[in-house]
Amino acid sequence: MKILILSDSHSHFENIYSIYNKENPDKVIFAGDYAKDGKELSFAVDREEDFYIVKGNCDFFDFHTKEIIEIELLNKKFLITHGHLFAVKKNYDIIQKESENKGYDIVIFGHTHRAYYEKLKDIHYFNPGAAINGEYGILLLEDEKIEFIHKKL
């Protein structure tokens, strides 16, 4: 399964549309800041059921999108959040503690506009960087194989 991971598009829809068409993913995770862009992309490609979207700190008037969602794909438990609720610009202590306590396998977040990947205590932490800058991520997920890739348009 190929999962496209996006965050922080900040109304640069053309970037995420180009990225989507370049990668042709099975699923899409949008980790906030202009969740509207993620929703518009899901409508444009007519695959709303394959999108997982959370809102971020810049989604002021979005009263319908959640700030945190949990999903399970191929027996892996995901936390998807923008990251602002976990103070990820300061450090990763809060999000790591929450992830360990809740038993997540994969944590997806944005907010910092910096690409990041680390595996700690069997938990994968991934920030794709900012789509406003053409940055994004790919997660290749198959049975026990988990591979994260940072990319740029």
Rank of each mutant, 00 (worst) to 15 (best):
A130S: 15
F109V: 08
K90G: 09
L153K: 13
K66G: 05
G110A: 15
V107L: 09
K102F: 05
V107T: 11
I80R: 01
I53V: 03
E142W: 06
S99L: 06
D46E: 10
F78H: 02
L141M: 01
N15Y: 08
K39C: 03
E14S: 09
V54M: 03
F86H: 11
E67D: 08
A87C: 15
N21R: 11
K22H: 04
K77V: 05
E49D: 13
L140A: 00
D50R: 05
N75D: 06
E40G: 04
H113R: 15
G83W: 03
I80W: 10
E98L: 10
D37Y: 12
E67N: 13
L4P: 00
D105Q: 14
F43I: 08
K55P: 01
N15H: 06
I132V: 15
S9H: 03
D59F: 10
Y52R: 02
Y136Q: 05
I68V: 09
H12V: 02
Y34M: 08
V88Q: 12
Y125T: 07
S18H: 02
F148M: 11
E23I: 15
S42P: 00
H64A: 05
I29R: 02
Y116Q: 08
H124D: 05
E40D: 06
F51K: 04
F109E: 05
K152H: 11
K76C: 08
N101H: 14
Y17E: 03
D37W: 13
A31C: 09
K39H: 07
F43H: 03
G110L: 14
A87S: 15
G103E: 11
K76V: 10
G137D: 02
K77D: 00
G38R: 04
A35I: 02
H84T: 08
M1Q: 06
D122N: 14
K119G: 07
Y117S: 11
K27N: 03
L141Q: 00
A131R: 11
K89P: 09
N133S: 13
G32C: 09
G103Y: 13
E48C: 06
Y52C: 04
I3W: 00
L4M: 12
F60Q: 01
S7Q: 08
K76S: 04
L74N: 09
T112M: 15
N57I: 06
F78K: 06
Y34E: 04
E142D: 08
K22N: 05
F51M: 02
E142K: 14
D105L: 14
E147H: 14
F148Q: 02
L6T: 04
N24E: 04
L6Y: 04
G103D: 08
E72S: 15
E135G: 12
K97S: 10
I53H: 00
E144K: 15
G137N: 02
Y116S: 04
G103W: 14
S11R: 09
I69C: 05
K27H: 07
V54K: 01
N24I: 07
V88G: 12
K55L: 07
I5C: 03
S9C: 07
A35D: 07
E72M: 13
E135M: 13
K152D: 01
A115V: 10
